[in-house]
């Protein structure tokens, strides 16, 4: 390709500017057209006009959701129902037998507390014209509770694993409310959330004492293998870190499956329909 050899750029004074202009025009024209197309493409207003090669699946724009106080309260409700369903599932699985049977009374008391929490949240939501959510958080149920319950049932120590998971779940519930405080816009709702969150923390403490009883179980410690032990008072400040719990039948290495459960994320919030 030689752009210059086929042209006589010095033939006449009138043809020279014409030749330059045409080349410049081509360059500028192409650039302008390209810029226009790119800008139009970035505008996103008329996707159907964009040239396309081959087949491409139609895309559906994601619905824009807003994390409002109502969404946070609905999510908190879903965590309460998650706890209720978990305790009921554990009770129905008949894993709390023998010495662990007395834990059933604790589970019943905690179910009553979580039911009260859900009712309190429902009243807060309806008072603000919102729509309560009376089901367990579906994403947290499938991500955490269902796998955990499967591990508990197949475990060699199902009662201990059930207690460990209940402790993890109550810790998660307390962290959920603590975490929501920074997101809730209405100050009085933050206090209402922490009234419930504090009771979840107390539940976690009771279960921690059931797992590691007595004064030696009050503060953090490690076992002879260096693994962290459950503590009734786990840290100086409440944390929002993921809660890890070892469940199930030990594998070939002698260790149980470690499940890491986290406070509700954007994907597990219960948005308003």
């Amino acid at each position: 390709m030689n752009m210059n050899t086929d042209h006589n750029t010095t033939s006449t004074s009138s043809s020279t500017p014409s030749s330059f202009n045409r080349r410049s025009f081509l360059r500028l024209g192409g650039l302008t057209a390209t810029s226009a197309v790119v800008l139009a493409a970035c505008g996103g207003e008329s996707h159907s006009d964009i040239a396309r090669i081959g087949l491409s699946p139609e895309t559906t724009a994601l619905k824009t959701e807003h994390v409002t106080d109502e969404v946070l309260l609905r999510t908190a409700m879903s965590v309460e129902y998650l706890a209720i369903d978990t305790y009921n599932a554990v009770a129905n699985a008949n894993v709390l037998t023998g010495d662990a049977a007395k834990a059933l009374d604790v589970a019943k008391a905690f179910i009553a507390d979580h039911t009260e929490h859900a009712a309190a949240l429902e009243s807060l939501i309806t008072a603000r014209g919102g729509k309560p959510f009376k089901e367990a958080n579906p994403r947290m149920m499938s991500l955490y509770v269902e796998p955990a319950l499967a591990l508990v049932v197949e475990s060699d120590t199902p009662a201990a694993d059930a207690l460990a998971f209940a402790h993890a779940l109550e810790t998660l519930a307390a962290s959920t409310y603590q975490g929501f405080v920074a997101q809730i816009s209405e100050a009085s709702l933050r206090a209402d959330a922490m009234v419930i969150g504090a009771q979840e923390a107390r539940h976690a403490t009771v279960l921690a004492q059931a797992i590691r009883p007595g004064i030696e179980g009050l503060l953090p410690g490690i076992d002879d293998k260096g693994a962290a032990l459950v503590a009734a008072v786990p840290s100086t400040f409440g944390t929002l870190a993921a809660v890890q719990v070892a469940l199930g039948k030990p594998g070939e290495s002698g260790t149980k499956n470690v499940l890491s459960i986290e406070t509700p994320s954007l994907n597990s919030l219960i948005y308003v329909d």
Partner: peptide, 11 residues
């Protein structure tokens, strides 16, 4: 702080 003081009281 509330979270841990709740743990304190229950413990």
């Amino acid at each position: 702080i509330i979270t841990i003081e709740a743990h304190h009281s229950a413990a």
